[in-house]
Design a protein around this nucleic acid. Sequence first.
RNA 1: UGGGGAUUAGUGUAACGGUAGCACAACUGACUCUGACUCAGUUAGUCUAGGUUCAAAUCCUAGAUCCCCAGCCA
Length: 589
Amino acid sequence: MVAGSNFITDLIDADIASGRWGVFAAGERGAAGREGKAKVVTRFPPEPNGYLHVGHAKSICLNYGLAVRYGGLFNMRFDDTNPVKEEVEYIESIKRDVKWLGAHFDDAARNGGGLFYASDIFEKMYEYAVELIRKGKAYVCELTGEEVSARRGKPGVPATSPHRDRPMEDSLRLFAEMRDGKHPNGKYTLRAKIDLASPNFNLRDPVMYRILHEEHPHAGKKWCVYPMYDWAHGIEDSAEGITHSICTLEFEDHRPLYDWFISSINEGRTADGSGPWGKKIHHPQQIEFARLNLTYTVMSKRFLLKLVQDKHVSGWDDPRMPTISGIRRRGYPAAAMRAFCEEIGVTKQNSVIDVGRLENAVRDNLNKRAPRTMAVVRPLKVIIENWPAGKVDELDFVVNPEDAAAGTIKVPFSGELYIEQDDFMEVPAKKFFRLAPGAEVRLRWAYFIKCTGVDKDASGKITAVRCTYDPATRGGDAPAGPNGEPPRKVKGTLHWVSAAHAVAAEVRLFDRLFKVETPGGASGDYLADLNPASLEVTTALVDPRLTTAPVGTTYQFERLGYFTVDQDSAPGRCVLNRTVTLKDAFVKG
RNA sequence: UGGGGAUUAGUGUAACGGUAGCACAACUGACUCUGACUCAGUUAGUCUAGGUUCAAAUCCUAGAUCCCCAGCCA
C-alpha cells in the first residue's frame, strides 16, 4: 500500500490500469510533459455564497493532491448557479484562500487546470436543456413551489404533475419565454421527465431551471433563468473534462441523477458525431467521501454567516473562526493544514476529528520554523537586590534550538525584570518547580536567581518578587565545584524580560469558540454553546524587535505558545494573535 | 413503515480469505537551559447471531446501530 492511498486512489489506479479515461493529447491543457500520461482531472467547485472553511480545505487538498499525485490537472470552478446567495466578495476570498492553501489552479506547471465559472457555460446548458425537451425528456411545469411540495408523494406513493405531458412545442416556447424574461419568478420551471414514482425522490421529475430575475455576480444581467445544481453540475464537469468528480456523502443519492442527465444528453449521440444529435459528451464519474468534522467546531456555512452577521465574531477572518481566512490570520501555516489533511485520510465513514490534531499539526510545523522570543503575557515584577545599580548585561539568546542556522541574538538583562505571574507561588503547590520563597530557578540564558521575599500592597496583593542572582551562573549554567563537584542544578527555567527594555504589545489570547465538544449537540442551538471566554485581550511585554516584524510573522513565545503578528498592527501598535499554546504537562495542584 | 450509505482500541485510519498494524489521545519512564521538542514503554479493537472454510475484519444469511434524502439551495 502506497503512502497516502485511499479508496479513491485505489479507484483511480484501476482506471489507469484499464485505460478508462485515455491519455492527455500533445499540447492539451498547458504544461508540456503531460502528453501520453493517463488522464486524471479533478476540480474544486464551491458555490461563492460564503467563505471557505477547514472542511473545504480537506476537499481542496484531496482534489489538488490527486492531480499532483497522478500528474494530472486540478481546476478551480465556481458553481455559481444561484445568484440570490452569491457575491463577488466571496469569489475573491475563495480564490485567495485556495491559492494560500497551495492549490495552484492557474499554474499549468504545477498541475493547474485553470479557473472556470459555471455561469460561463450557461448558454451551453440552455442548449442541452432545449435538446432534452426535444427528446421528450423535459417539460415546462407551472406548479408553484407549494404545489410541487404538496404533490411530492411519499415512499410508495408517487408524485404528480399535471403538466408532464405538455406538448413539446409548448414547452419549447414557454422555456424560451422564461429565458426572455416574459414571466415572473416562480411562474414556471423546467423539469426533467424521469420517474414520479421513484423511491429516490431526487428522480421524481427534478427541477432543472427556475426563473430568477436577479443580477449575477459573474454573468451580470444576462440571465433570468438559472440552472439547478443537479442539472448544471455534471455538465460543468463534462465540459472541463473532469474524470473524477469528487463530492461529499450527501450527494450519494444524487448520483443516479448526475448520470441520468449526461446519459440523456448522450442519447442519440455517437462517439464520432454521426448520431442525430451529434457527438457524445464526456461522462465523468462522481465519487463521494465523508466531509471533515472537528470537535468544538461548527462547519455550517449558514451558521458561520450568522456568527458574522450577528457580530459574535469580528468577521469571516476572525482568528477564532474555522474559516481558511480565520486560521490564516490566526497564524496556522498552510503546510500544517495540508499535513493535517494528509494525516486524517479519506473514507466514506462519517467521523469527527479531535480538533487537537489540527492544533498538533500546527505546533509540529511551527516548532521547526518559528524563531523563539521571550515575552511575558501576565507580568509580575522581579527585583534583583544584588544587581549593580544601572548595569545592563547583554546575553546570548538561541533563536531556534531546532534550527542551528537561526543563530543567536543579544537580549538585555537588568536589575528589574518581569516574569509570568504563573511562574511564582507564595505557597508552592506540589511538584511546582518554578519560583517560590527560598527557591532557586534559572532565568533562561541568563542567571540563577533565588527568591528572598515579596513586596505587597495594602490589600495584601503581591506587587513584586525580590531575588538575588548568582553572578557565577551567567549564561544560565552553574560552574563545576572547586574540587570537580558536579555543577549545581535547578529544576525550573523561566522566561523573562528586562523591565526597562521590553515594550508593550496587545496580545489576543484565543480559546475555542465553543465550550462543548459537539456544539448544538442535543438542542441544535449552537449559540448556546458559544464559549464566552474565547477571546481575552491582554497587554504583554515583548522584545522591541517584534514591533517591526511584518504582519503574519510567527514567533514562539518560549514556554507559552506561538504568536503571530496581526493585521491590526500599525507603526507604534503591535498586535499579536496567540496561534496555539505549547503543550503543558504541568497540572496545578 | 421507502431509498441511499457506513460500522475495526477513547478518536481517526490500515489490513482486499492467511500473524489485526499505524497515528493521535491517555498513562509510565528517560532526556532536557522551553514542564516544549525528542526517545522508550504500557493500556486498549474487528456491531450482534448464525453459516461457509484448514483458516473470516474480509465471503454468505439474518439482525442491530448511526448518518443522509420529500428546496424552484448546493
